[in-house]
């Protein structure tokens, strides 16, 4: 077993999305999860710019500039789609109607704090979009990321050092080398890919429950 590449990670997350769930997939890597959802599962994709029943990203030749995803890419409309304005779209999140959202992250803490909107660097232009609304509102907030930054530092940490997006909101962290459940009792490892339990515990400062492995 080796570490998951981006496609395999997207497939891994897709396999856990419950049939019939209303799901928001964040900008960037999580968008790829849509390709691995079984159409028969009845999962309905929400995009915060105002649509349920969003289809796939379409080539430019088929693009309709009035029909885009949250990343402003042209998309298609599935049978049974619905359009709505922004206040309704975010009511769907805050009101607890959205079952799952999947976002990328700079850091996730052992207690489920999420940091994914701002590095805090002096020259960075802050941009939050819908990340804080999703973090506060979706019933389940899942994160999809590499476990280690390019310099090797872990992104699952005892406490986030980047500015927070939401507190104690993340319930699952899907990474290229392991999947983590954030539970009231602590962080549980449910599977690993190309990394030993010893290496995982030695490189992460967060206490891990790896009994099942």
């Amino acid at each position: 077993m080796t570490a998951l590449d981006k496609e395999a990670l997207a497939r891994r997350v897709a396999s856990d999305i419950p049939a019939g769930a209303y799901v928001n997939l964040g900008i960037g890597q999580p968008t790829a999860i849509a390709r691995f959802l079984d159409p028969a599962s009845g999962v309905v994709l929400h995009t915060e710019n105002g649509m349920l029943g969003m289809g796939e990203v379409v080539p430019d030749a088929e693009a309709d500039q009035d029909l885009t995803n949250a990343g402003k890419q042209p998309v298609s409309e599935l049978p049974g789609a619905a359009y709505f304005h922004h206040a309704d779209s975010f009511a769907m999140m805050r009101g607890g109607h959205l079952d799952v959202c999947v976002m990328g992250a700079f850091q996730v803490s052992a207690g489920g704090d999420l940091a994914n909107w701002h590095t805090g660097a002096p020259d960075a232009i802050p941009a939050v979009g819908g990340a804080m609304d999703l973090a506060a509102g979706a019933k389940e907030v899942w994160v999809m990321m590499t476990l280690f930054a390019k310099d090797g530092t872990p992104k699952l940490v005892p406490a986030c050092t980047y500015p927070l997006t939401g507190k104690a909101c993340v319930t699952r962290v899907y990474t290229d080398v392991a999947t983590f459940l954030i539970e009231p009792s602590g962080v549980r490892v449910v599977d690993t890919f190309g990394i030993s339990a010893d290496e995982l515990t030695s490189r992460i400062e967060v206490p891990l429950d790896i009994r099942v492995l």
Partner: peptide, 20 residues
């Protein structure tokens, strides 16, 4: 923004909608 010629207030997207 980088040359200090414009002010910026960042508001979460849903708060932007709900505040209006």
């Amino acid at each position: 923004y980088r040359s200090g010629k414009i002010e910026l207030e960042v508001v979460p997207q849903g708060n932007l909608a709900e505040r209006m």
